[in-house]
Design a binder for these strands. Sequence first.
DNA 1: CGCGATCCGGTTGTCTGACAACTTGGCGGC
DNA 2: GCCGCCAAGTTGTCAGACAACCGGATCGCG
Lengths: 255, 255
Amino acid sequence: MFTNELKHSEPTRIVRRPRLSEEVSLALEGKIARGEIRPGQRLPAEKALAESFGVSRAVVREAVARLKADGRVETRQGAGAFVALAPKSLNFRFCQGDAPALVELREIFELRAMVESSIAELAARRRRPADVTTMQCFLLAMDDAVATGSDGSEADDDFHLAIAAAAHNSYAHRLLEFLGRHFSESRRLAWTMPGRHGVLPESAQSEHRRIYQAIAAGDAAGARRHAHEHVRCAARRVAVELADDLISERRGDVR
Amino acid sequence: MFTNELKHSEPTRIVRRPRLSEEVSLALEGKIARGEIRPGQRLPAEKALAESFGVSRAVVREAVARLKADGRVETRQGAGAFVALAPKSLNFRFCQGDAPALVELREIFELRAMVESSIAELAARRRRPADVTTMQCFLLAMDDAVATGSDGSEADDDFHLAIAAAAHNSYAHRLLEFLGRHFSESRRLAWTMPGRHGVLPESAQSEHRRIYQAIAAGDAAGARRHAHEHVRCAARRVAVELADDLISERRGDVR
DNA sequence: CGCGATCCGGTTGTCTGACAACTTGGCGGC
DNA sequence: GCCGCCAAGTTGTCAGACAACCGGATCGCG
């Protein structure tokens, strides 16, 4: 095809050249979103798409495979590819691209407070002895981390997932697991910033203990309150750190 | 024509033959989940995978493309495919495959109650005049649907999304939008079952009105309570309908 | 005429082989 | 020791082919 002519003519090439399959899948996504192809309707054949986009069929297949993985289209061998009526799954993307901005951080913490407090409440109602034991296990692991000054981020993640497990709702568990990838990033942000050596502050640990005790005691309202408060405090810790950074402004990477 | 000999020789062929690429992607997914390939580590080369699975490279590429779309792996041309460290997006799948079982329905409603009540509470704190107007608009549309006996499911979806918009948290809004695909299915289930003609029951509409009034009045606790109750009632309506179906057992498709 | 069985074009799924674009590590020159 | 270049390995893309399958058209028979 006519592409790929500018091999070395662009010295300031920082971002990688976009993959053809990405362009095609984005284009198809757009067609679907704009309603040019309605749900239930058939997409053009792969061969036709390949010709119209000026690419090979392999590229089209890869693009369609992505839409299929996203649940936006379904394919039937011999019949064609159809825009899904009611997607069984969908990609939920956080901050596509870069790190979240400050205003987004507030919203993430807010969402985290909503979800985690609801799950904690449910856990207080449903927990069984085994669940309590598991939670206690990770709580002790974090105690250890505080005492020795080692990294307790993993135990922190596990602790919050153990709460979700105690709620005995597989959908809620999967949701938190899913959100957790992003929550844990914000969680870690609270105590892995420079100068903190990744040490879990004792204040956070005492919050954990309060949540644990409320769930163990079956105190639903208390569990909700403490979980909500925990997230609020975490947000405050992050905000303080960020403010310090902004003042001393000696940093380049916020990763 | 010696082909197509077993076209009708297999009468019990209900499930389609599993696609090779699905098997491979599932196998790789398992390897990653079990920790056989850790985050940040490189996957075997496509050629090697193709040989070990006994398939062509095209199949492997399709399988990897799916994992890539799910955000579980990242590929770098010339370097290889790597298990993602912190996926920016992840596919959250409901009931992979068939319709949700009964026990799953309970969990879905439970999750829906958690999320919608939290969002309603936030909406009561944050709503602005314009938000209230929007919500009222959809409320009236549903009134219309009840009066004329027409389909009000779209207005129902819009009403719940308007609440999320009033919460002024883009992440929460996107989450509900995302979950909504599945919630709305369960929501519609409550009043599109046979014999109901897809008519919105007035009881549900009065619940909507209570939620609306609480949010408009800025009553956070009330909004949470009413939203929670609304979902509980919806679950009960679905349960009653399902029970009726089970007793009269005159149906084949539950779609 | 009505109604199956059959056929046929079109479409997706898979295979094969090849080359381009790119990364990485090592080797050699300085 | 350090820098640049090269080569092997890997992913991205292309082309062509065949198998499996679907849906409608066609044909044959009662």
